[in-house]
Computed example of a mutant assay.
Amino acid sequence: MSKYLIKPLGSVWLNPYAISDLKKDLLLYDKLGMLNLHTLLEGLHQYKKYDLFQNQLNEVEYLIEKGVFIELKQLMNFAKKGSAMFPTDDMEMANYIMKLKAKISEITDEKERDKIYWQINELDTRLWSKIVNINNESVVTVPYLNDVSSFERTDTVKEKAYSIINKSIPLPSEGTSWEKIFDFKSDSESQLKLLALKNWINDLPENMSSNELEDKIQYLSYQYTESLKRHKISTRLITFKTIITALPKGLSELLRLRFDKAIEPFFEIAEQQVNFSQFKEREDLKGNELAYISLTNKKFNKTK
């Protein structure tokens, strides 16, 4: 099942760093989508004489060509279904959107009109993401929202989990190429860890609140970080012992004569701390389900 992050128009159009954000997004999601993607392309074409918009246009067209940035309504496939189910719980929101669209033409203040325009864009993105989710079982779409609307969000636990985890994925530096992003995504270790993360999300109980889910994710991430540290200590100790044992007898004895009082207590204390029996395999480390987050930070977070 493919996971799509649905970006509102404003998240690219109003953001000078939008391309780095898209790189970050694609580290977690399979693909990106946008409601009325053609509107973004038309706007970027109109202002492409400016380097910023030309660069964004080139990047967006590249992603479309790669098949990882699509029009949201393509996922509906109306032609095959003939008709579509509508999320009845959101009927009030749909009516509100229609009222805003009727109202916007009457507003003369430019700032107020822009504010309502971007609110409509976010509400439409949210509504159409839900329409796709209930009509296409082969995908999960998660709307990327600033939550400016007055409507309470009713995300599924999967949508909540992806939104929370996306905040932990590092923002690649401006010089990070798309090739580096795609190479990372195609790496076998990355794919295995991302699959483990997705499976963990799939198994989450549907009744978890956002606060409970955020606490759980933070706790597991902390557990994995601490477990990984202890695993590294274990690996280094074993390596050190192997080197000492493999040395020629004379040199080994010389080292032991010099460091004997320090080496053995160090081994004893470290082994008690590590508890080797619990850390024989990295796959058994606590919090390993969220190892993909740690992997992306190790690869792309230059501040760590």
Rank of each mutant, 00 (worst) to 15 (best):
Y4E: 04
Y4N: 04
L5V: 04
L5M: 12
P8D: 00
L9E: 09
G10D: 05
W13H: 14
P16D: 01
Y17W: 15
L26V: 04
L26E: 09
Y29T: 02
G33L: 12
N36H: 14
L40N: 07
E42R: 10
L44M: 11
L44P: 14
H45Y: 15
H45F: 09
Q46K: 15
K48D: 00
K48R: 13
K49W: 10
Y50H: 14
D51M: 01
L52F: 10
Y62W: 13
I64A: 12
F69R: 01
I70T: 06
Q74W: 11
Q74V: 01
A79E: 14
A79V: 05
G82N: 05
G82H: 09
G82L: 06
S83T: 13
S83E: 13
A84Q: 13
M85N: 13
D89W: 09
M91T: 15
A94H: 15
N95G: 07
Y96S: 01
Y96I: 02
I97C: 01
E106H: 08
I107Y: 10
I107C: 04
D109F: 10
K111M: 09
E112I: 02
D114S: 06
I116L: 12
Y117C: 02
W118G: 01
Q119G: 04
L123V: 03
T125V: 08
S129M: 02
K130Q: 07
I131V: 14
I131H: 10
V132E: 09
N135H: 07
N135D: 06
N136D: 03
T141H: 05
T141K: 07
Y144G: 04
D147N: 11
F151Y: 15
E152D: 12
T154L: 06
T154F: 08
D155W: 15
D155K: 02
D155R: 10
K160R: 11
S163G: 09
S173Y: 12
S173F: 11
E174K: 09
G175S: 14
E179D: 09
E179F: 07
K180Y: 07
I181L: 05
D183G: 05
F184G: 06
E189S: 13
Q191Y: 12
L194Y: 13
A196P: 03
I201G: 00
N202P: 02
L204I: 01
M208K: 14
M208T: 08
S221P: 01
Y222E: 00
Y224R: 06
L228V: 05
R230V: 02
H231A: 00
H231S: 04
S252P: 03
L257C: 06
L257R: 10
R258N: 03
I263C: 00
E264R: 15
F266S: 11
E268K: 15
E271V: 04
D284C: 07
N288Y: 14
N288V: 10
A291W: 12
L295V: 00
N301R: 13
